[in-house]
Design a protein around this nucleic acid. Structure first.
Length: 418
DNA sequence: TCTGGGGTCCTAGGACCC
DNA sequence: TCTGGGGTCCTAGGACCC
């Protein structure tokens, strides 16, 4: 039976900032969400000060100031690039890898590895040495247990921990049910109301009861707690089924022109993602968030549009998005956010022909987009774009404390004074 | 004053079909 | 009074993850 390893970067966003800023070591550091609104990553020192995950900045303002916490706006260009480096490095040292999120991956170590625990320590050392990021590694007979082991590894000296048959029950008994991967807030509350408080309690629940109340996914989780693997390692994840790009504004937006600029920019980004996975979309959905004067309650509204022909051609997608926006827009509201969702994908190789879309036209469109994508991937995001997305960006979200793009932009490369 | 952004999967219920 | 049986597709809502 293979052992799953979960490699997880410690306090990932904070650790990325630390790689290029050594004075942050051992100091409280936080990274903020877009608009510098919430705390989305904390160093251990910041956690120790009681700063919570997802906490709005205005609520912990005093602690941040009084305790000299280092604050950064999120820099996803940097984090994505650092993530890529970690995953490439792991790929070289693993037999199989499933990149699970920006900062973690499930892996099977190579077959020749006799001792998973020692090999994990070796990997941990390598990643720190090559990339500068600290990772923790959890090992277990199922994904759920590898996750659990990882939580223990994070608090351990060595940063590596393995759950085996012999220590399984002992660990489950001290793991709160809400700490299990796949058991969220709602289920935790529900389970506790039935006096199911620990992972051990859940492991011993009746299958039918679990199936009925926690759905098939919940039952799989319970099986995994028993050491029976139900979630496979997926080393070839399928193309995305929907693509969404949205941002909150840095100020209240009132004019439809500004909304259109922001929307066109989001559509441009989403369309690039769409083409990258070789898909074309049949449907677009535009959503907006707004408030009214003298009232902070937030309203969401959305509208979909079915394209006559599936496409990944940015101008057509901007046009479709604008149709939705124009139908929803009402003057006099304070707009906070706009976003686009593409869904109902078709593989780009199976293009549907119609009278609207003759072959020549389609070839031209494909060529144009391919060229633009090529230039942008070489010269930087949105070096070339459509005029609809031209803007003074006065609505852009606040990112007052962003660090430099150390790894992706020659002009922002780290300089050292000697 | 200020509360992120991007995904997946499951289920129940309605519409519709034979 | 009794109100088939089996299926598909779609959607909204709810749960979860990082």
């Amino acid at each position: 039976m293979p052992t799953f390893a979960l490699v997880d970067c410690n306090n990932f966003f904070v650790s990325c900032e630390r790689v290029f800023n050594p004075k942050l070591a051992n100091k409280p550091v936080v990274v903020l969400s877009s608009n510098d609104a919430c705390v989305i990553a904390r160093s251990n020192e910041a956690k120790a000060l009681g700063i919570k995950m997802g906490e709005p900045v205005f609520k912990c303002d005093q602690v941040l100031k009084n305790r000299n916490v280092f604050i950064f706006s999120s820099n996803f260009t940097l984090y994505n690039d650092m993530s890529k480096r970690v995953m490439q490095s792991l790929t070289q040292m693993a037999r199989e890898i499933e990149v699970y999120s920006i900062d973690e991956a499930f892996v099977f170590w190579p077959d020749i590895t006799l001792n998973n625990h020692d090999y994990s320590k070796h990997i941990k050392h390598k990643i720190k040495q090559n990339i500068g990021l600290p990772v923790s590694i959890g090992l277990g007979p199922t994904k759920t247990l590898a996750k659990m082991a990882n939580n223990i590894a994070k608090k351990s000296e060595s940063g590596v921990f393995e759950i085996t048959e012999s220590n399984l029950d002992e660990i489950l008994k001290v793991t709160p049910v809400g700490d299990i991967w796949g058991i969220g807030r709602r289920y935790t509350k529900f389970l506790i109301s039935y006096d199911i408080n620990t992972a051990y309690d859940l492991k011993n629940c009746d299958d039918n009861w679990v199936r009925k109340n926690l759905s098939i996914i919940g039952l799989k989780t319970v099986m995994e707690l028993r050491g029976i693997s139900c979630f496979n390692l997926d080393d070839n994840p399928e193309a995305k089924k929907s693509i969404c790009v949205s941002r909150s504004f840095g100020k209240n937006v009132i004019e439809i022109e500004e909304l259109k600029e922001a929307l066109a920019l989001h559509v441009t980004g989403a369309a690039a993602k769409l083409r990258k996975q070789n898909s074309i979309t049949s449907s677009v959905n535009v959503f907006i968030m707004y408030t009214k004067y003298h009232d902070n309650f937030r309203f969401y509204q959305s509208l979909s549009y079915q394209l006559p022909v599936a496409t990944a051609y940015t101008p057509d997608l901007i046009r479709a998005a604008n149709i939705c926006l124009e139908k929803m827009f009402k003057p006099g509201l304070l707009y906070k956010k706009v976003g686009i969702v593409f869904y109902d994908f078709v593989c780009a190789d199976f293009v549907q022909m119609s009278t609207i879309n003759n072959v020549n036209n389609l070839e031209k469109q494909t060529k144009v987009m391919r060229t633009i994508d090529k230039i942008n991937s070489k010269k930087g995001k949105n070096k070339v774009f459509f005029a609809a997305a031209l803007s003074d960006y006065s609505w852009e979200s606040r990112r007052l404390k962003k660090s430099a793009n150390f790894t992706t932009n020659w002009n922002e490369i780290l300089t050292i004074k000697i």
